[in-house]
Structures are given as C-alpha cells and as structure tokens.
C-alpha cells in the first residue's frame, strides 16, 4: 500500500469498570445512576482497536488514524486526556449519550454519517476498526451496520491479529468457538475489523503524543456535532443476573485462582 491506509476507529466511552452501575429511569428515559458524574474510559474493545490501528499506521507509511467517538462532549474530553497520550490520531467527536440505552442502528447511522464527512476520505484505502463488542451494551451489531452503510462488505469480527503481507494482502485471525481462530485473507481495503483484544498491550502515556494530538482534539471537541438518538422503549431494564461480588484477596497462588475458576465453571 504505497499511500498507506486511512484507518477510522469507532470507539465510544463507558463508565469506569470499578463503578457501581445502577439503571434508573429519568425524565430522558433510561440511564445509569449518576452516569454523567461517574468517571469514564474509552470502551476497552475500542481501545484495543485504536492501539492496533496506531501500530498498523506506523508500519504502513503514509497512513493516518481517525478516532470517531460518540459520547457526552464533556466526558469525551476527560477521556481524551488519557487516550490522546497513547496513540496519534485525529478525533471526530459526536455529542450524544453514551450509556448504552440506544439502538445499534441509530448509533451506526450517526457514526457512518460522521465518517462519510471526513474531508479527503478515500474509501479505497479505508480500514474501519472498532470493538467487536462493547463494555456498555454488547449488541455486537454496531460495527457491522456502520460497514454496511459505508459499503464496506469485507468484514471480520473478533479479530485478534492483522498482518500485512506481500502485495498488500491482509491476513486476519478471527476468534471462533472453542478458543480457535479462523484465518482469512483479504486483498486490501476497504475492509472492516471488529477487534477482540488484539495482541498489543496498552501503550504507556506519552505526553509528547498527547500534546500533538490535543492541537486537533480540543477543536474537534468544541465543534462536536450534537446527535439526537431516540431511545427505544424498554420493557424492563436490569443488570445482568450474575451477581457481581468483588473480593479483594492477596497473595493467592495462580494455581488456587485457576482451581477456583474451574470449580466455579463446573458448578
């Protein structure tokens, strides 16, 4: 790929995983209790996609990464203070709720519209990245719909590895049942990749990268387009039925942890 890729990462924000999440019904519909006040992070699945995108962009000269993120503008800004230090990208911000009480189709439509509007976007070089799942509400459909709306029909979900081969062929490892991978190749862009965890660790914060990103992130946040998302009617809303019990344990051997997990699965 002589001119490099145009990698667009779709990534929303979710409450920090240590926070207690309690669905409540307010005047604007369903949401999480004190959602706006809870600290937020980039959806971990999207995070993997972003770090993989940055890594790929480094390997393919001339590539560029955009992060298209939808969430309350002020929360996005807080999240960007960390995320912008981890990888070089240009932010496209959409100002909308992020609580997960939305339809995947509506979200995907807004994301696709924002991507279409990226100046100079060349779909023949486009790689669409995103999370295979989401930590807010795992419909697992948003990225697929984004791809369809943009006419990107080569789609891969549960991706853990993407390598560029001779002639620009992309080799993909997708998760399938039983801990196995399905290996595929695609001749090149445009293609969509819904990432699982990937293979890269979270990059350390790099303030130099952050300062460079912020020159574009802050203006992007200021002109974030408000998006109205109609909330569907919910018959009922409840937390997953598994009871979350956080235990703090210390100095437990790995074998004991493994045994406990096996016992739990067997039970």
């Amino acid at each position: 790929m002589s001119d490099g890729y145009q990698i667009v990462v779709c990534g929303g924000i979710v409450p920090d995983p240590l926070q207690t999440l309690e669905p409540v019904h307010g005047p604007a519909g369903w949401g999480l209790k004190n959602e706006l006040m809870l600290p937020a992070i980039l959806d971990p699945w999207s995070g993997h996609a972003l770090y993989e995108a940055a890594n790929l962009a480094k390997a393919a000269a001339g590539s560029k990464v955009w992060l298209v993120s939808m969430g309350p503008k002020a929360k996005l800004q807080q999240v960007m203070m960390t995320v912008a230090q981890k990888a070089a990208f240009e932010l496209i911000a959409l100002d909308a709720p992020a609580g997960g009480f939305t339809e995947a189709g509506d979200v995907a439509a807004a994301l696709a519209e924002a991507i279409e509007a990226i100046p100079g976007l060349d779909k023949s070089r486009l790689l669409l990245f995103g999370g295979w799942q989401s930590a807010s509400r795992g419909a697992g459909a948003t990225m697929q719909i984004v791809g369809e709306k943009l006419g990107v029909v080569d789609q891969f979900q549960g991706v853990d590895k993407l390598t560029i081969e001779d002639g620009g062929v992309l080799r993909v490892l997708e998760r399938v049942e039983g801990g196995s991978y399905q290996e595929s190749t695609v001749s090149g862009p445009p293609a969509l990749f819904g990432w699982a965890t990937g293979e890269l660790p979270e990059p350390p914060n790099n303030p130099q990268v952050g300062m460079a990103n912020m020159r574009l992130v802050m203006p992007a946040l200021q002109k974030a387009k408000p998006v109205q998302l109609a909330q569907p009617a919910f018959g009922s809303v409840q937390l997953p039925c598994q009871k979350r019990e956080t235990r703090i344990v210390k100095d437990t051997p790995v074998e004991a942890i493994a045994r406990e997990i096996v016992d739990w699965i067997n039970a």
């Binding site: 203070m81 960390t82 912008a84 230090q85 914060n205 303030p207 912020m214 992130v217």
Partner: peptide, 8 residues
C-alpha cells in the same frame, strides 16, 4: 489540557 494530561 497539558496539566490534565499530566494528571492522568
């Protein structure tokens, strides 16, 4: 924002 990033 420079300070906010440093905090994070």
């Amino acid at each position: 924002y420079d300070l906010q990033m440093v905090v994070q």
